[in-house]
Amino acid sequence: MSKPEAARGRGTVRPVRRLGDPVLRTECDPVRAFDASLERLIDDMFASMYEANGAGLAANQIGVPLRVFVYDCKDDEGRRHVGHVVNPTLVAADGDTLEEPEGCLSLPGLNFPTPRYAHAVVEGVDVKGEPVRVEGTGYFARCLQHETGHLRGQVYIDVLSGEARREAMRAIRGGRV
């Protein structure tokens, strides 16, 4: 995935936290200061996401327990969506439930069939505090649900069930993360 022009040369790559780090299991705090440090955080998040070849990244995945995520992914019609949401709320997750392979930068190398809704809407604000509403279908809807889950202290394996959950737990216990 290529970097958008705005992200070129900006941001510092930070290490992505792995499953087992307590920051991934803690609900994130709302952003209260819309300043240069928030801009740097978002730049660092994009740089870190691109370095890890991800489609989305939540702030807690780089050790910052704030309600922010960035994304660069396509929807089910192939349209590319690039952006960020501060203090996001998942206001809609509906439509068909699709069970497709999903992975996570915090659980590298693992992919499991994960149920997600085909449509999602997130509302929040941008880096300047201006309202934003992001709506997605297909893979982009999956991304929106995945990243908002991170900010609630969840990882995608929390929504698995049955054999997929058992397989994920075996992989984690076996040290494949």
Rank of each mutant, 00 (worst) to 15 (best):
152 R>E: 15
8 R>D: 00
104 C>P: 06
44 D>V: 00
113 P>Y: 04
99 E>Q: 14
137 T>E: 13
50 Y>P: 05
7 A>H: 11
127 V>N: 03
166 R>N: 10
95 G>A: 04
155 V>Y: 04
175 G>T: 11
112 F>I: 07
56 G>P: 00
31 V>I: 10
172 I>K: 02
25 R>W: 02
8 R>V: 15
17 R>Y: 04
110 L>D: 07
125 V>E: 14
47 A>R: 01
29 D>T: 12
21 D>E: 13
60 N>I: 01
9 G>P: 13
84 H>F: 03
9 G>L: 09
124 G>D: 12
94 D>K: 14
91 V>P: 13
13 V>G: 12
138 G>P: 12
15 P>N: 06
100 E>C: 10
78 G>L: 00
9 G>Q: 13
76 D>V: 11
111 N>W: 14
148 T>N: 09
154 Q>A: 09
151 L>W: 06
147 E>S: 10
82 V>H: 05
168 A>D: 04
147 E>W: 07
159 V>Y: 07
60 N>E: 08
103 G>H: 06
18 R>F: 04
176 R>M: 15
22 P>I: 02
108 P>M: 11
113 P>N: 14
60 N>A: 08
123 E>Q: 15
60 N>S: 07
92 A>F: 10
169 M>Q: 15
55 A>T: 14
135 E>C: 09
59 A>P: 05
85 V>T: 02
114 T>W: 05
37 S>F: 00
51 E>A: 15
151 L>M: 14
8 R>Y: 02
41 L>R: 03
132 V>Q: 10
140 F>K: 04
67 R>P: 05
128 K>E: 14
44 D>Y: 01
173 R>N: 13
16 V>N: 12
71 Y>E: 07
148 T>L: 05
94 D>A: 14
134 V>S: 09
52 A>G: 10
94 D>C: 08
53 N>A: 11
38 L>W: 02
56 G>Q: 08
106 S>I: 04
43 D>W: 06
114 T>E: 02
146 H>D: 11
1 M>F: 12
98 L>G: 00
38 L>F: 06
163 E>A: 14
85 V>N: 00
113 P>V: 02
122 V>K: 00
79 R>Y: 09
167 E>H: 03
49 M>S: 03
98 L>C: 11
88 P>K: 03
86 V>R: 01
88 P>M: 07
113 P>M: 13
12 T>G: 06
127 V>R: 04
126 D>K: 07
83 G>Y: 01
139 Y>F: 15
104 C>Q: 02
75 D>G: 12
86 V>K: 01
34 F>R: 03
161 S>K: 13
133 R>T: 13
161 S>M: 00
99 E>S: 13
144 L>N: 10
110 L>M: 14
39 E>I: 05
98 L>Y: 00
109 G>K: 11
17 R>S: 10
162 G>R: 03
15 P>L: 03
147 E>M: 07
95 G>F: 08
100 E>W: 13
88 P>L: 09
23 V>Y: 03
33 A>F: 07
39 E>H: 08
119 H>W: 11
170 R>S: 10
166 R>M: 06
102 E>P: 09
8 R>N: 06
120 A>Y: 03
31 V>H: 04
15 P>D: 12
130 E>W: 09
98 L>D: 08
13 V>W: 05
139 Y>K: 09
54 G>V: 00
10 R>C: 01
131 P>G: 08
26 T>G: 08
114 T>F: 01
41 L>T: 07
85 V>Q: 04
